[in-house]
């Protein structure tokens, strides 16, 4: 058994960005099958155009169309491509100085072995058919042909003003050793915490160090499945990703023996009757549905005991 539990996690977000006049001009060009550079105060044509002049810091306003054909100024072989790169099989990344430009552009080159690429070789743009105003409108570079790249027509007459860049990252997310014990406990129908040896507080879910003292928590403690509602809210508003139909009650439940409340769902009682101090107990899903998750506990419901005294939970609010 490894020390920790882990699970794959994907974190993804589509970044929506406005382009501004300079990058927008460049991306509009790509959509319409043109490569556009910017001329700096020193007369150099730079692709992609920088937004501001590197010397005067003035906005770049002088745009120049350069050729879709150029010369490789550096290259590397990508033996193990990562997700999202222009090819999912080995390829070359290249710096290409396009004819008419003074600075090279970074992109991919479609060759099948490192023997087919060299500094100084002539390459040309391979345009993507569906172009939207993105650096990937250039599908890649390819070895230059005598006839040059296949010409493409302009796609729109409106300027590109924004891009959407999807970003998705895959992780193998590990729980800490203490969290791992907590989830292993849940898989056995138990709720485990950790006691801080300095302040004696019991953390559920457990933490590796006591946030009060910085002391490593060392003692594992099984806490009760019955506890007290310290505070709650009635959810009436629908939101994206909501799993339960409103209205429902989310509450902090301070389990007997714990010093930190856990957030959970309260059922088995009309929402209007839920109150601070109400005594509740865990209701588990059928055992065959258990996994390493707090969701093994389906919800909490009232025990019918008298409410807890305010003094018993006032330090846990």
């Amino acid at each position: 058994m490894t020390r920790t539990l882990s699970a794959p996690v994907t974190v993804a977000f589509d970044y929506t960005r406005s382009t501004g006049p300079v990058i927008g001009r460049f991306l509009t060009g790509l959509r319409d099958g043109q490569v556009v550079g910017g001329r700096t105060s020193e007369g150099a044509v730079v692709v992609p155009p920088p937004e501001f002049d590197p010397v005067t810091h003035e906005p770049i306003t002088d745009f120049v169309e350069v050729a879709p054909v150029g010369t490789v100024t550096s290259w590397t072989w990508v033996p193990e491509p990562v997700k999202g790169q222009p090819f999912d099989r080995p390829f070359a990344f290249v710096l290409v100085r396009l004819d008419g430009a003074d600075a090279p552009l970074l992109h991919a080159l479609d060759v099948s072995s490192p023997d087919e690429v060299s500094t100084g070789m002539r390459v040309q743009v391979r345009w993507r058919e569906e172009r939207v105003g993105s650096i990937t409108d250039i599908e890649c570079f390819e070895v230059a042909t005598e006839s040059g790249p296949t010409g493409v027509e302009a796609i729109g007459d409106n300027p590109v003003t924004g891009v959407i860049v999807p970003v998705s990252l895959d992780y193998l997310y590990a729980a800490s050793p203490e969290e791992s014990a907590f989830y292993r406990g849940l898989n056995e129908g138990r709720i485990l915490g950790q006691r801080c040896p300095t302040c004696e507080k019991v953390y559920v879910p457990p933490r590796s160090a006591c946030p009060t003292d910085g002391t490593p928590t060392s003692e594992e403690v099984e806490v009760s499945q019955t506890g007290t509602i310290t505070t709650f809210c009635i959810v009436n508003v629908p939101f994206l990703g909501q799993k339960i139909t409103p209205p429902y009650v989310s509450a902090y439940v301070l389990l007997d023996g714990a010093d930190i409340a856990v957030l959970h769902l309260i059922l088995g009682v009309p929402a209007a009757e839920v109150r601070m101090g109400m005594r509740v107990e865990a209701v588990w899903k059928p055992r065959e549905e258990w996994t390493y998750s707090l969701e093994n506990i389906d919800h909490f419901e009232p025990t019918g005991e008298p409410d807890a005294d305010y003094d018993t939970y006032k330090h846990h609010l």
Binding site: Y15, I23, L27, P48, K83, G84, Q85, A108, I135, V165
Partner: peptide, 15 residues
């Protein structure tokens, strides 16, 4: 640079 570089996912080793 998120407009002209990130969409190609140029990895550190390649750069």
């Amino acid at each position: 640079e998120p407009y002209t570089m990130t969409p190609l996912w140029p990895d550190t080793v390649s750069l």
